[in-house]
Protein backbone atom coordinates (compact mmCIF):
# COMPACT_ATOMS: atom_id res chain seq x y z
CA UNK A 1 0.00 0.00 0.00
CA UNK A 2 2.70 2.46 1.05
CA UNK A 3 4.73 1.43 -1.95
CA UNK A 4 2.07 1.88 -4.59
CA UNK A 5 1.31 5.32 -3.15
CA UNK A 6 4.90 6.46 -3.22
CA UNK A 7 5.36 5.12 -6.73
CA UNK A 8 2.24 6.96 -7.85
CA UNK A 9 3.48 10.15 -6.24
CA UNK A 10 6.80 9.71 -8.05
CA UNK A 11 5.04 9.43 -11.40
CA UNK A 12 2.80 12.38 -10.50
CA UNK A 13 5.92 14.48 -10.08
CA UNK A 14 7.39 13.40 -13.41
CA UNK A 15 4.00 13.96 -15.02
CA UNK A 16 3.78 17.47 -13.56
CA UNK A 17 7.21 18.45 -14.91
CA UNK A 18 6.43 16.91 -18.29
CA UNK A 19 3.00 18.53 -18.49
CA UNK A 20 4.45 21.96 -17.91
CA UNK A 21 6.99 21.56 -20.71
CA UNK A 22 4.44 20.31 -23.20
CA UNK A 23 1.92 23.07 -22.39
CA UNK A 24 4.59 25.73 -22.67
CA UNK A 25 5.77 24.22 -25.94
CA UNK A 26 2.33 24.56 -27.50
CA UNK A 27 1.79 28.06 -26.15
CA UNK A 28 5.18 29.42 -27.13
CA UNK A 29 4.01 29.77 -30.71
CA UNK A 30 7.05 31.61 -32.01
CA UNK A 31 9.40 28.92 -30.76
CA UNK A 32 7.27 26.22 -32.35
CA UNK A 33 7.00 27.97 -35.68
CA UNK A 34 10.67 28.91 -35.85
CA UNK A 35 11.89 25.47 -34.95
CA UNK A 36 9.70 23.84 -37.58
CA UNK A 37 10.44 26.42 -40.23
CA UNK A 38 14.24 26.13 -40.17
CA UNK A 39 14.39 22.43 -41.05
CA UNK A 40 11.88 22.99 -43.84
CA UNK A 41 14.05 25.77 -45.21
CA UNK A 42 16.98 23.40 -45.29
CA UNK A 43 14.98 20.61 -46.79
CA UNK A 44 13.56 22.70 -49.60
CA UNK A 45 16.24 25.31 -50.30
CA UNK A 46 19.40 23.28 -49.73
CA UNK A 47 17.66 20.10 -50.80
CA UNK A 48 16.41 21.52 -54.09
CA UNK A 49 19.29 23.95 -54.61
CA UNK A 50 22.09 21.45 -54.26
CA UNK A 51 19.84 18.75 -55.58
CA UNK A 52 19.86 20.38 -58.99
CA UNK A 53 23.65 20.09 -59.35
CA UNK A 54 24.63 17.33 -56.94
CA UNK A 55 23.81 13.71 -57.26
CA UNK A 56 24.55 11.12 -54.64
CA UNK A 57 25.93 8.82 -57.31
CA UNK A 58 26.48 5.74 -55.21
CA UNK A 59 22.82 5.62 -54.27
CA UNK A 60 20.06 6.15 -56.70
CA UNK A 61 18.21 8.82 -54.66
CA UNK A 62 17.83 12.49 -55.33
CA UNK A 63 19.58 14.85 -52.98
CA UNK A 64 16.46 16.15 -51.28
CA UNK A 65 15.42 12.67 -50.24
CA UNK A 66 18.99 11.86 -49.31
CA UNK A 67 19.15 14.67 -46.75
CA UNK A 68 15.61 14.05 -45.43
CA UNK A 69 16.79 11.77 -42.58
CA UNK A 70 19.53 14.29 -41.85
CA UNK A 71 16.98 17.10 -41.62
CA UNK A 72 14.91 15.05 -39.17
CA UNK A 73 18.01 14.68 -37.04
CA UNK A 74 18.74 18.37 -37.46
CA UNK A 75 15.39 19.25 -36.01
CA UNK A 76 16.07 16.90 -33.10
CA UNK A 77 19.53 18.40 -32.53
CA UNK A 78 18.23 21.95 -32.48
CA UNK A 79 15.11 21.32 -30.45
CA UNK A 80 16.76 19.04 -27.90
CA UNK A 81 19.90 21.04 -27.18
CA UNK A 82 17.97 24.31 -27.12
CA UNK A 83 15.30 22.80 -24.93
CA UNK A 84 17.95 21.78 -22.42
CA UNK A 85 19.70 25.08 -22.37
CA UNK A 86 16.41 26.99 -22.03
CA UNK A 87 16.67 25.99 -18.41
CA UNK A 88 18.58 29.27 -18.01
CA UNK A 89 15.23 30.99 -18.59
CA UNK A 90 13.59 28.87 -15.95
CA UNK A 91 16.29 29.99 -13.61
CA UNK A 92 16.11 33.62 -14.63
CA UNK A 93 12.37 33.73 -14.02
CA UNK A 94 12.71 31.72 -10.82
CA UNK A 95 10.44 28.93 -11.99
CA UNK A 96 13.28 26.51 -11.38
CA UNK A 97 13.62 27.78 -7.82
CA UNK A 98 9.95 27.07 -7.19
CA UNK A 99 10.46 23.51 -8.41
CA UNK A 100 13.60 23.03 -6.38
CA UNK A 101 11.88 24.14 -3.20
CA UNK A 102 9.29 21.40 -3.71
CA UNK A 103 10.03 17.95 -2.29
CA UNK A 104 11.28 16.69 -5.63
CA UNK A 105 14.71 15.17 -6.08
CA UNK A 106 17.09 16.61 -8.62
CA UNK A 107 17.15 13.40 -10.64
CA UNK A 108 13.35 13.50 -10.83
CA UNK A 109 13.49 17.08 -12.10
CA UNK A 110 16.03 15.96 -14.67
CA UNK A 111 13.89 13.03 -15.78
CA UNK A 112 10.71 15.09 -16.07
CA UNK A 113 12.47 17.78 -18.05
CA UNK A 114 14.08 15.25 -20.37
CA UNK A 115 10.73 13.60 -21.09
CA UNK A 116 9.38 17.04 -21.91
CA UNK A 117 12.22 17.66 -24.34
CA UNK A 118 11.76 14.28 -25.99
CA UNK A 119 8.07 14.95 -26.47
CA UNK A 120 8.77 18.32 -28.05
CA UNK A 121 11.26 16.75 -30.45
CA UNK A 122 8.84 14.02 -31.35
CA UNK A 123 6.11 16.53 -32.19
CA UNK A 124 8.44 18.42 -34.51
CA UNK A 125 9.61 15.24 -36.15
CA UNK A 126 5.99 14.23 -36.75
CA UNK A 127 5.44 17.43 -38.69
CA UNK A 128 8.55 16.71 -40.77
CA UNK A 129 7.45 13.14 -41.44
CA UNK A 130 4.20 14.45 -42.85
CA UNK A 131 6.19 16.83 -45.05
CA UNK A 132 8.28 13.84 -46.07
CA UNK A 133 5.17 12.04 -47.28
CA UNK A 134 4.34 15.08 -49.36
CA UNK A 135 7.74 15.14 -51.07
CA UNK A 136 7.43 11.46 -51.79
CA UNK A 137 9.38 9.70 -49.04
CA UNK A 138 7.63 6.46 -48.23
CA UNK A 139 7.93 4.45 -45.08
CA UNK A 140 6.30 1.32 -43.74
CA UNK A 141 4.67 1.16 -40.31
CA UNK A 142 7.72 -0.73 -39.06
CA UNK A 143 10.00 2.00 -40.39
CA UNK A 144 7.85 4.55 -38.60
CA UNK A 145 8.20 2.74 -35.28
CA UNK A 146 11.95 2.40 -35.79
CA UNK A 147 12.21 6.09 -36.66
CA UNK A 148 10.41 7.03 -33.46
CA UNK A 149 12.80 4.86 -31.41
CA UNK A 150 15.87 6.45 -32.99
CA UNK A 151 14.45 9.96 -32.61
CA UNK A 152 13.65 9.36 -28.93
CA UNK A 153 17.12 7.98 -28.25
CA UNK A 154 18.85 10.86 -29.98
CA UNK A 155 16.57 13.35 -28.30
CA UNK A 156 17.19 11.83 -24.88
CA UNK A 157 20.95 12.07 -25.37
CA UNK A 158 20.90 15.62 -26.67
CA UNK A 159 18.33 16.97 -24.21
CA UNK A 160 20.58 15.56 -21.49
CA UNK A 161 23.51 17.35 -23.09
CA UNK A 162 21.55 20.61 -23.31
CA UNK A 163 20.37 20.33 -19.70
CA UNK A 164 23.92 19.62 -18.59
CA UNK A 165 25.20 22.72 -20.36
CA UNK A 166 22.26 24.78 -19.13
CA UNK A 167 22.83 23.70 -15.54
CA UNK A 168 26.32 25.22 -15.63
CA UNK A 169 25.33 28.46 -17.30
CA UNK A 170 24.19 31.45 -15.33
CA UNK A 171 23.55 33.89 -18.13
CA UNK A 172 22.12 33.93 -21.60
CA UNK A 173 25.44 35.09 -23.01
CA UNK A 174 26.59 31.51 -22.95
CA UNK A 175 23.74 30.55 -25.21
CA UNK A 176 25.40 31.76 -28.39
CA UNK A 177 28.42 29.66 -27.51
CA UNK A 178 26.21 26.60 -27.40
CA UNK A 179 24.86 27.37 -30.84
CA UNK A 180 28.31 27.85 -32.35
CA UNK A 181 30.24 25.18 -30.55
CA UNK A 182 27.68 22.48 -29.89
CA UNK A 183 24.62 22.66 -32.10
CA UNK A 184 26.21 23.47 -35.43
CA UNK A 185 29.15 21.05 -35.12
CA UNK A 186 26.82 18.26 -34.02
CA UNK A 187 24.70 18.88 -37.09
CA UNK A 188 27.35 19.56 -39.74
CA UNK A 189 29.66 16.73 -38.67
CA UNK A 190 26.88 14.18 -38.66
CA UNK A 191 26.83 13.57 -42.39
CA UNK A 192 23.30 14.91 -42.47
CA UNK A 193 24.12 16.72 -45.69
CA UNK A 194 26.71 14.41 -47.28
CA UNK A 195 27.62 10.75 -47.47
CA UNK A 196 30.21 9.77 -44.85
CA UNK A 197 31.92 6.97 -46.80
CA UNK A 198 34.67 8.89 -48.56
CA UNK A 199 35.63 11.72 -46.21
CA UNK A 200 39.16 13.02 -45.57
CA UNK A 201 40.57 11.45 -42.46
CA UNK A 202 40.35 14.49 -40.13
CA UNK A 203 36.69 14.91 -40.96
CA UNK A 204 36.05 11.22 -40.72
CA UNK A 205 37.37 11.15 -37.15
CA UNK A 206 35.12 14.01 -36.09
CA UNK A 207 32.17 12.39 -37.80
CA UNK A 208 32.84 9.13 -36.00
CA UNK A 209 32.65 10.71 -32.55
CA UNK A 210 29.49 12.71 -33.31
CA UNK A 211 26.50 10.80 -31.90
CA UNK A 212 24.21 12.41 -34.45
CA UNK A 213 26.10 10.56 -37.22
CA UNK A 214 24.64 7.32 -35.95
CA UNK A 215 21.11 8.64 -35.83
CA UNK A 216 21.39 10.01 -39.36
CA UNK A 217 22.81 6.72 -40.57
CA UNK A 218 20.13 4.73 -38.79
CA UNK A 219 17.35 6.82 -40.25
CA UNK A 220 18.86 6.61 -43.73
CA UNK A 221 18.93 2.89 -43.27
CA UNK A 222 15.35 2.75 -42.04
CA UNK A 223 13.77 5.23 -44.43
CA UNK A 224 15.92 4.99 -47.58
CA UNK A 225 17.68 1.66 -47.09
CA UNK A 226 21.16 3.14 -47.67
CA UNK A 227 23.05 3.14 -44.36
CA UNK A 228 26.83 3.06 -44.02
CA UNK A 229 26.87 1.19 -40.71
CA UNK A 230 24.64 -1.63 -39.63
CA UNK A 231 21.49 -0.63 -37.74
CA UNK A 232 22.75 -2.57 -34.74
CA UNK A 233 25.92 -0.49 -34.47
CA UNK A 234 23.95 2.75 -34.81
CA UNK A 235 21.54 1.69 -32.10
CA UNK A 236 24.36 0.52 -29.82
CA UNK A 237 26.29 3.77 -30.10
CA UNK A 238 23.16 5.86 -29.52
CA UNK A 239 22.31 3.80 -26.44
CA UNK A 240 25.82 4.28 -25.13
CA UNK A 241 25.68 8.03 -25.64
CA UNK A 242 22.23 8.17 -24.06
CA UNK A 243 23.42 6.39 -20.92
CA UNK A 244 26.56 8.50 -20.65
CA UNK A 245 24.85 11.85 -21.24
CA UNK A 246 21.88 10.88 -19.06
CA UNK A 247 24.25 10.09 -16.21
CA UNK A 248 26.18 13.29 -16.78
CA UNK A 249 22.95 15.31 -16.76
CA UNK A 250 21.74 13.72 -13.53
CA UNK A 251 25.08 14.42 -11.91
CA UNK A 252 25.05 18.03 -13.12
CA UNK A 253 21.55 18.56 -11.78
CA UNK A 254 22.55 17.19 -8.39
CA UNK A 255 25.35 19.70 -8.05
CA UNK A 256 23.45 22.60 -9.62
CA UNK A 257 22.98 25.55 -7.28
CA UNK A 258 19.40 26.47 -6.52
CA UNK A 259 19.94 30.16 -5.90
Amino acid sequence: MYNTTSIRIYFDKIYALWLREVKVFFREKSRLVASTFTPLLWLFVIGSGFGSSTSISAHAVDYQKFIFPGIICMSVVFSSVFFGSYIIWDRKFDFLKSVMVAPVSRSTIFTGKTFGGMTNSLIQVSILLIVGLIIGVQFSPLALVQTVVIVLLLSFALTSLGLTLGSYMTSLEGFQMIVSFVVFPLFFLSGALFPIDKLPQWLSILTTIDPVTYAVDALRNIILGIGSHGLGLDLGVLLLYSCALGALGTYSFRRMKAV
Binding site: D12, K23, F93, F95, K97, V101, P103
Partner: peptide, 27 residues
Amino acid sequence: GVVFQVPSSDDLLTGYENLKIHALLYG
Protein backbone atom coordinates in the same frame (compact mmCIF):
# COMPACT_ATOMS: atom_id res chain seq x y z
CA GLY B 1 5.58 26.72 1.47
CA VAL B 2 7.74 29.47 0.03
CA VAL B 3 6.70 32.66 -1.69
CA PHE B 4 9.75 34.17 -3.32
CA GLN B 5 10.56 37.81 -3.70
CA VAL B 6 9.98 37.68 -7.43
CA PRO B 7 6.91 35.74 -8.55
CA SER B 8 8.03 32.43 -9.97
CA SER B 9 4.87 31.00 -11.49
CA ASP B 10 4.97 30.12 -15.16
CA ASP B 11 3.63 32.99 -17.24
CA LEU B 12 2.34 30.83 -20.02
CA LEU B 13 0.31 28.59 -17.76
CA THR B 14 -3.00 29.55 -16.20
CA GLY B 15 -3.35 30.12 -12.50
CA TYR B 16 -5.11 26.80 -12.18
CA GLU B 17 -2.42 24.95 -14.12
CA ASN B 18 0.33 26.42 -11.98
CA LEU B 19 -1.46 25.23 -8.87
CA LYS B 20 -2.16 21.80 -10.31
CA ILE B 21 1.46 21.28 -11.28
CA HIS B 22 2.61 22.26 -7.83
CA ALA B 23 0.00 20.07 -6.16
CA LEU B 24 1.41 17.15 -8.16
CA LEU B 25 4.99 18.10 -7.29
CA TYR B 26 4.08 18.14 -3.60
CA GLY B 27 2.38 14.77 -3.81
